[in-house]
Design a protein around this nucleic acid. Sequence first.
RNA 1: GGAGGGAUGGCAGAGUGGAUGAAUGCACCGGUCUUGAAAACCGGCGAGGCGCAAGCCUCCAGGGGUUCGAAUCCCUUUCCCUCCGCCA
Length: 425
Amino acid sequence: MFDIRLLREREPEVRAAMKARCVEVDVDALMALDGKRRSLISEVEQLKNERNTASRDIGIAKKAGQDASARQQAVRSLGERIKALDEEVRDVDEALHTGLLSIPNMPHASVPVGQDESANREVRSWGEKKSFDFDPKPHWEIGEALGILDFDRAARMSGAGFPLYRGAGARLERALIQFMLDMHVNEHGYEEVSTPFVCHSDATRGTGQLPKMAEDMYYIPADDLYLIPTAEVPVTNIYREEIIDEPLPIYLTAYSPCFRREAGAAGKDNRGLNRVHQFDKVEMVKFVEPKTSYEELEKLLKNAEDVLQRLGLMYRVLELCTGDLSFAAAKCYDIELWAPGQKAWLEVSSCSCFEDFQARRANIRYRNKKGKPVHVHTLNGSGVALARLVVAIIENGQGADGSVSLPEALWPYMDGCKRIERKAE
RNA sequence: GGAGGGAUGGCAGAGUGGAUGAAUGCACCGGUCUUGAAAACCGGCGAGGCGCAAGCCUCCAGGGGUUCGAAUCCCUUUCCCUCCGCCA
């Protein structure tokens, strides 16, 4: 959540930041609400103070056996005024809160300014585009021919965008999850968690998906539950409404399926596994002290890159510009894999620092050296997202005969299988 | 799903209409003592908001009500526990 104090104390900066993000924010209206809220509170608190004092006196008088009915009568009308004012405060509070919830985070000073993805800055790339002595095919052709992907049958039961993996395809999915979790736990120092895959709206608001992304989530009205669009939601909300008493930083990693309606994205880059309503992902989440959050972001990014390097897949790292930054992020790197069969880059990871934006919404704090409760900084990154990772493995590993060679790092996770080939007829 | 019982500070646990975040114990922090530690003793110790400040206001699971006044009485929601039923 946006901090109202930023607005009070650094109004010009806030206006500039929102302009850089290409977001319209009615700063004047919010400032007016803030002022009104404060003056109402002063007024009602003074009345409450009067009532408390009067009630105390009545109690003392009654104990002494005196009649206090006249004074009780007088205080009653005070109570009515308080009630009316309290309601007014609540209304203003709610309006202010709603307004603040809809303001995106302030971008970090290092974030390049720009309107859209064309202004994103390439930070580095790793590996080389693989060359083929034949015309490489897209994964949906290879996968269907191998019998490891079955889009038609999946669509019959669930509609388009829900993949069905079979045989070595299903095994590859499971192997990748295990491989990535093992790396993060054994080499990168994360604790593995396994979470609920549905969350209440308040949890979803905590990480910033609600209210803005409501249309992009699957919702179960009977139980007021959302299917998680990313493990970021349940994992970050583990410490919701808490003052964390464990030492920071805390590193958590989790596997989860992710559900996304992708409303408005129909027909766009959505062939095969490129953009699906359900995919698997291994996520990394950090809770850190504010002063360390940007070092932690770089480490997080490296952890995600490690996965891709181990798999020998060519990728590039982009630093998102102000206009392309997601709602809650202050800074964000995307990692894109090269998919030679489509001659396209596919986003498989997004590593973000939220500073205290999510922590403020979800009310996650720790005690600083002076013992005062302070909001933590939260970060998260995909480490990494499946479906598209599978796309890159298939398209990069394809041979002229339609088989797919697997990266060596996966062999132990595939029972020694090094290559997926057409089943003997 | 049915019946009953609960929810108080970091934890345990008093408090059932009248000053006050709220007895007590544990934990924690500071001090005395000690070569050092422990023990003992002394002191401190919840969160949020408004205010330049002094200070004031709010919070005893959430919401609503009764009252001059609610942790305490009433209604309601959520969660937990016990028993019964069902079940991977």
